[in-house]
Computed example of a mutant assay.
Amino acid sequence: MLGLIKLYTVPRYRRMMKGIAKDAKKRGLTTSDYMRTLGSSDLARYLVPPIKPMDVERFGLPPDAKITTKPLLPKPVRDAKVAHAAGNWQPGADLLAGIGKDWDRRSSVVSLLGEVAADDDTALKAWRAARPDDADAAAVHADALTNVAWQIRSARQAKYVSAEQFRGFQRVLDEADEASQTAAELAPDDPTPWATRCMIAMGRQYGHDEFRTVWDGVLARDPLHVHAHARALQYWCDKWFGTNDLMWTFAEEGAAKHPKLAWLPLAAAFEASFAGVKDAWRDKRVEAALDRLLPWLDGEGRDAPDTPNSRAFAARALVELRRGTEAVEQFRHLGRSASGRVWSYSGYGASHEFRTHRNRACRLAK
């Protein structure tokens, strides 16, 4: 009974208990008896807040059933990913060779292949055996090892990570660091290994001066590198090794460089809001960032590799600012893709978060 009383003191659990009580009554059972029939997945279902029905198709948006959390990739990238997962490294190698020094696009493909290789490195091993000094294979190898390390650690707070996990995490990070240095030596002009090293630096708990040394390596090769800025913003968050002020400073400095980085203050507002900062989305820096970002998304940046992620941040910011018509327009561009980072923090899942804010946008647009 005491446990039930505690549940009722928390709004989200109170909602869960009301839902359970309602369903128990339908079945002619007491709440306690009905709860004994429920597994953990059943209880989780009751915790998810309902999404108010909305006819999103009236606004030219795809129905809920078609929403996917998987990135909607261009065909050449999708084909390379599928081939890599099947053990064939050649399409990925050809794709990277064709990209050349388009650093943002190169980094996005390296990250994608690195994620695949972290789960199954068959193709990567064959690639490195066939071309031992291939800089592209080395960059994917470093990224893959970094992914493996973070898989071992998990995304949970440090207090929930076991000592054994931490030991495995640090051991693989050491390998990743060595691999990233090798990749950097094979392609001295390439910022991609340095962007990978930003993630390694977080895992190895670099101090500010150490991290800035890595960051200087990125800036020397590409001062506008999108993926590196995304990773560095995490470092400067209060939840990692920075503060709210340091995060905002970094975001503003990045946004001032180029419109394609104007999503950074939106990401800062999101992180601050997630950390409990009241009215973070109402910060004047958010509107200023949108003024720079939105024209770029509709023009030069329409087909940039990280545009879907930037649009997702823009859509969320516009909803929070109650600019519904503009938010709906961003959701039209996003289509059925709920793969943006801004949706991924929710304990209810990215699809639920995406649909919730999309519905809010439509209600505001009415």
Rank of each mutant, 00 (worst) to 15 (best):
D291N: 13
A280H: 12
L290K: 00
A288R: 09
P259M: 14
D283G: 01
D283K: 01
E287I: 11
S273M: 00
W296D: 04
F270W: 05
P265G: 09
S273R: 02
G276I: 03
L290Y: 10
L290E: 00
K257N: 03
L266S: 02
L297I: 12
L290R: 03
R282K: 11
P259S: 12
P259Y: 08
A255I: 07
P295V: 12
P259A: 13
A256N: 12
P265F: 06
P295Q: 07
P265M: 08
W281Y: 15
A262G: 09
A289H: 06
A289T: 02
W281P: 08
A256L: 10
D279N: 08
A289G: 04
A255S: 13
V286I: 04
H258G: 08
A267K: 10
A269E: 04
A288D: 12
A280D: 07
L266R: 00
K284G: 15
K284N: 14
R292I: 04
K284W: 13
F270K: 00
R292P: 06
L294C: 04
K257D: 03
A268F: 04
L290C: 03
L290N: 03
A255G: 05
F274W: 11
L293W: 05
S273T: 06
E271I: 02
A272H: 14
E271C: 11
L264W: 12
E271M: 11
L294W: 00
A288H: 06
W296T: 02
V277Y: 13
F270I: 00
W263D: 04
L294Q: 11
L294V: 13
R282W: 04
D291T: 05
L266G: 04
A275W: 12
K284M: 12
R292E: 15
W281I: 09
P265Y: 11
W263C: 05
V286C: 01
F274H: 15
E287R: 14
W263M: 01
F274G: 09
A269W: 05
E287T: 14
F274S: 11
R285L: 08
L297M: 11
G276P: 02
A262E: 12
A280S: 14
D279W: 05
L264G: 13
A267L: 08
V286A: 03
V286E: 04
P265C: 01
A288F: 04
K278Y: 12
L297K: 03
P259V: 14
W296E: 01
L261C: 07
A289L: 09
W263S: 06
L290Q: 10
K260N: 13
V277I: 15
A256M: 08
K257S: 10
G276V: 00
A269T: 10
E271W: 15
L264I: 06
L261H: 03
W296H: 12
L297A: 03
A289Y: 06
A269Q: 05
K257V: 07
R282H: 13
A255R: 01
A262T: 00
A280F: 09
A272V: 00
R285Y: 01
A267Q: 10
